[in-house]
Simulated scan of single mutants.
Amino acid sequence: MDKRPRRLRYNPQIRTLVRETSLEVSDLIYPLFIKEGKGQKEEIHSLKGIYRWTLESLEEEINEIVALGIEYVLLFGIPYHKDNKGSEAYNKEGIVQQAIRKIKSLAPHLYVITDVCMCEYTSHGHCGILDEKGYVHNEKSLYYLGQIAVSHAEAGADMIAPSDMMDGRVGYMRHELDEHGFNHIPIMSYSAKYASSFYGPFREAAGSVPAFGDRKTYQMDMANTNEALREVALDIEEGADIVMVKPALSYLDIIRRIKDTYNMPLAAYQVSGEYAMLKMAVANGLLNEEAIYEATLSIKRAGADMIITYFAKDLARKLKG
């Protein structure tokens, strides 16, 4: 018998008919940076085309997101005031809490997810409370992270996404949310968050560069895969509704392994460094824009059910034709 796989590649119609993986606008979650202050949007130098938005300029962005059919956003706050307890993170009138209410007034059906962490809010830039030796104290950090989660839910967030990587934080936040009447609010946990070099542009965008040291005592070693499975198992046991791998492109094997092991909704974060590399390559004519679609499709093909990506608007335009 004549074996000819090319029969199914003969023209666009047959290629579409047998295509195994699809990328839809409904798969995309768009990160938004909201800063305190007045005035217009401010482009982030290291993330061309991505902006810090004030509350008064935010309507422009929300209108565009809705027009493109993007249904999900992930909020990051950039406060004026920082201290050693990250108190603006759980302030009921903090920048994220205000942004949630603003977005819900502009687009009630837009699904608002909030990043729960402390690094943007602490004076030292770490993701929790420091002890006297400068080590992030796990249990003390949980208390404040729980307050942040509840304050976001009270402001109207649809989902919270803890990214701090403290031990036991999913269970602690689940308990706090339930105790305050928010048992309907899901948790999307940054379960396998690696200590990666690909976060550089984000740290500039969010003003969250550590004042000293690094985050390797709580974020994962880039060399480990079995550890990722253990982290995911713990988060599922503690009540996570969605688990996440971050970054995405250099960790496609982790995405696949988690998807094969656990019957759970799986998110992947195509992070700032991945965006910056591809954006720069396209801008300099080294790649065409199809490379953006190809890279993002690879994340979906690896097993991600949803993708957090700064390319969400670009991809939405492409997918809408």
Rank of each mutant, 00 (worst) to 15 (best):
Y194G: 05
K313Q: 08
T16I: 04
E231T: 07
S22I: 01
L177M: 01
M280F: 08
K48N: 14
I185N: 00
D214Q: 06
I70Y: 02
N84K: 14
K320Y: 03
D158K: 00
M159C: 14
A206Y: 00
E238A: 00
I160P: 04
L58Y: 06
N138I: 00
I95R: 06
Y251M: 15
Y143V: 14
G321Q: 05
L130T: 00
A157R: 04
P210L: 03
Y218F: 08
A211F: 05
A276M: 10
P108V: 02
N91W: 08
S163I: 00
I185A: 09
G213K: 02
S250L: 10
H180M: 13
L32P: 03
M1C: 10
Y121W: 08
T114Q: 00
V209F: 00
A149R: 01
I148A: 10
G200I: 00
A268H: 02
A223S: 14
Y121N: 06
L234V: 11
S87T: 07
S298V: 02
M173L: 06
D241E: 04
E71I: 01
K85R: 15
H109S: 12
K92E: 15
R215A: 08
A223F: 08
G171P: 01
I299V: 15
V25R: 02
A206G: 15
I236M: 05
M277A: 14
L286E: 11
R9H: 11
T225E: 15
K104D: 04
Y80R: 13
E120V: 07
